[in-house]
Computed example of a mutant assay.
Amino acid sequence: METKHIKIFSGSSILVKGLENLLEDNNIHYLIKDTVESARLAGFGTQINSVELYVLNTDVDKANIFVENYKTEINS
């Protein structure tokens, strides 16, 4: 089975950081793609909600439980 990373969440860096903490606490490995910081370093702008969080395709089901609970929490 080929492993690849699947995007499970995107938002501001603050929201992504909160989800990062949940995933770390539950031993789910992830990658962050921060286009905001990359754009700033390159000298141009981008949308503020351009931070993306990816997990391995083998961890998607486990991670989605935390993502859905997190979305409910931040939207309440």
Rank of each mutant, 00 (worst) to 15 (best):
M1L: 08
M1I: 09
E2Q: 09
E2K: 14
E2S: 12
E2P: 14
E2R: 11
T3D: 10
T3A: 04
H5R: 02
H5E: 15
K7S: 09
K7E: 09
K7V: 05
I8V: 13
F9C: 00
F9E: 00
F9H: 00
F9A: 04
F9P: 00
S10L: 03
S10A: 10
S10Q: 13
S10I: 01
S12F: 11
S12N: 09
I14Y: 09
L15Y: 11
L15M: 13
V16M: 01
V16Q: 02
K17D: 11
K17A: 15
G18V: 00
G18H: 04
L19T: 08
L19C: 04
E20G: 04
N21A: 07
L22R: 00
L23C: 03
E24L: 12
E24G: 02
D25S: 14
N26M: 01
N26R: 06
N27V: 01
H29I: 13
L31K: 15
L31E: 14
I32F: 04
I32N: 08
I32M: 06
K33W: 10
K33G: 08
K33I: 11
D34Q: 03
D34M: 01
D34W: 04
D34F: 01
V36N: 15
E37I: 13
E37F: 15
S38H: 06
S38M: 13
S38G: 11
A39M: 05
R40A: 12
R40Q: 13
R40I: 10
L41H: 14
F44Q: 09
F44K: 14
G45P: 03
G45W: 12
V51N: 00
E52F: 09
E52C: 07
E52N: 13
L53G: 12
Y54P: 07
V55H: 06
V55A: 04
L56E: 15
L56M: 10
N57L: 03
N57H: 07
T58Y: 06
T58D: 10
D59T: 02
V60L: 03
D61V: 07
D61T: 12
A63Y: 03
A63G: 03
A63T: 04
N64Y: 08
N64C: 03
I65Q: 02
I65F: 05
F66R: 03
F66W: 08
V67N: 04
V67L: 06
V67F: 06
V67R: 01
E68T: 03
E68K: 09
Y70P: 02
T72E: 06
T72C: 00
E73C: 08
E73I: 11
S76C: 05
